[in-house]
Nucleic acid binder design. Structure first.
Lengths: 339, 339
DNA sequence: CTGTTAGCGCATTCAG
DNA sequence: CTGAATGCGCTAACAG
């Protein structure tokens, strides 16, 4: 004997299928007594409710929300910022009794899952640009985070302003500035941007941050040489070390490092300290994101805190709400010992 | 006009539904020419293949695999060992063109997703014991990792032996030993086990590890006082610090700390160093799991490396293979400066 | 090689 | 309050 179905249970109890269905989905459609009886009988029979797959086919919604990561799961799960975001999404989804399907932004097809999910929360522009096209003409709900898609709701912070604020907090007249940026051009290794064309990845946060840095520098009469503007393909230790070593071994060395993530900033500080540089006397550093680890490190890092877990919750809530606006979340500049 | 369906497309092209279905699913059932024509026409019509939800209802399989975490997503995503495991699972699943649904072990119901997935990979005994009952009588494929379920395939390492090995490598005759254990009893805070009954959480790895420690100690003529056997509810800094402070401030202080995770061991070392203890001269420490961070820390940690990412891949492969055996993976004892 | 048919398990009419 | 009928979108026989 296989798993009972609504039909088999109805027959066993001598009632119609509609009655069983109503017992589970529309309590007001039958007497309390009968409902009680049906429910307990079902429990005995080992029937624990309508098949969700069939229900989903019938009703067109499944209670599963896909989160599209900008990169592979592999990379994402190991990035503290993304992890925090996911925690927030998971927490809010749990509240809504919905489920979370993690999807890689380097996959090349949404088709394999669109039919299973109620929609997409898209965290950062997916690495595979094909997905963006698919998302644009996706009939289901799509919400973006940290980037925009025409006509779709989004959740974001004002990256340009936040970057500007952070730069203004650390820069002084006469500074020699280096920027350790994230995914600015199309290259798989850490390198100076040089003359390579900036890669406009759907209004990426990185470019907004760069704009902010540059506005601050301009205001202070500083200029950023292309040789001191670095592209890092990923926010991790290895990429950051390469860049930091190259930048800091110049002479004269930069006096300020503007970093597009806290992980980058921490690695850079490690390199700087190893080279014998004193922070903040000889080198000031500012990061971006706000992760716990910066508080345990010495010196503590000045950074833009964007509370990614709250961002995740906000995203899941906005997804659910059905509202189609572009939400701007607040951030907080927190100064540490690094500036 | 809404989304095209197989039927509507068939009518539009003047062929039968079966032909369309075959064009997508069984290329050998029709001429190449016709198939080409159908596929390109479908592309024009904006039809990108059979609806997966309907397909799943019909075929009884969806290509989605659920990973049940032992705890909330929130906790899991921030634990480096779990993250690494998930990376491995994700990588292998991606190879199989399957999808990953993350599910919380503290949820109280599998019903909401069983019908959507092809089965479950269960990473550690779920915190909510109800799930275990549900998994036992689940008609779908279930594979466990780091614990066992009667009649179900599993992937594991020999925790008892690994713990024994690690203890033998650090212990010396005359040592005063403390164990910082994980989830040994039913308590939400860090505390000595004392006389509380050991919580047998479905043959948990923690108890196997404890067995291993004790075998080693017995062999060396050492005994473990109940006051030096600690229960930590979670593998994190806060829980570990509480325990480490209490244990290390005794006099005489223990000379060896056997820790059931690397995160615990690192935190304990931090506490020890802050207390002015020299490692390994005055205190030797050994961990469990093998995470990158231990290599960056000074002193580097002696630990049992169990390569969680490979474990994840092995689990996903075993899930797919259909084999029902209990797989034992190898581990590696790596000695660092802490012993 | 192609078309017809009968469900997969369910929710929703609508008539009683 | 109940039961029969219809179809959600698709696939696997089977028949041609």
């Amino acid at each position: 004997m296989s798993k009972p179905t609504l039909k088999s249970v109805a027959k066993a109890l001598g009632v119609s299928t509609a009655t069983i269905s109503n017992a589970f989905n529309r309590p007001d459609q039958l007497s309390v007594a009968l409902r009680e009886k049906i429910l307990s009988s079902c429990a005995e029979l080992g029937y624990d409710g309508p098949n969700k797959a069939a229900q989903s086919l019938r009703k067109g919604s499944s209670g599963i929300v896909a989160v599209i990561l900008s990169d592979s799961l592999e990379y994402m799960v190991s990035d503290p910022v993304a992890s925090q975001f996911l925690q927030g999404v998971a927490r809010e989804l749990e509240r809504q009794s919905k489920h979370l399907l993690l999807y890689s932004g380097s996959a090349d097809n949404l088709d394999s899952i669109t039919d299973f999910v109620d929609g997409f929360i898209c965290y950062g522009a997916p690495r595979n640009l094909k997905l963006i096209e698919q998302l644009k003409r996706c009939p289901k709900r799509v919400l973006t985070v940290d980037f925009d898609l025409p006509g779709r709701p989004s959740v974001n912070i004002d990256n340009e302003q936040a970057a500007y604020d952070s730069a203004m907090a650390v820069l002084k007249p006469g500074d020699k500035v280096a920027v350790l940026g994230l995914r600015l051009i199309d290259a798989a290794d850490s390198r100076t941007v040089g003359t390579a064309p900036l890669w406009d990845n759907q209004s990426s946060v990185s470019h907004r941050r760069l704009d902010g840095y540059q506005r601050a520098m301009q205001q202070l009469g500083l200029t950023l040489s292309n040789e001191l503007l670095w592209h890092l393909p990923e926010s991790n230790q290895a990429c950051a070390e390469t860049a930091a070593k190259a930048v800091l071994s110049q002479s004269p060395a930069p006096t300020v490092l503007l970093c597009m993530s806290d992980l980058i900033a921490l690695s850079a500080m490690r390199v700087a300290l190893a080279l014998g540089l004193r922070i903040p006397e000889q080198l000031r550093v500012v990061g971006f994101d706000g992760i716990e680890e910066t508080l345990r490190y010495h010196p503590t890092l000045s950074s833009v805190w964007q509370f990614s877990d709250q961002k995740g919750e906000a995203a899941a809530r906005a997804f659910q709400s059905g509202q189609d606006d572009n939400q701007l979340l607040s951030y907080e500049l927190r100064l540490g010992e690094s500036s």
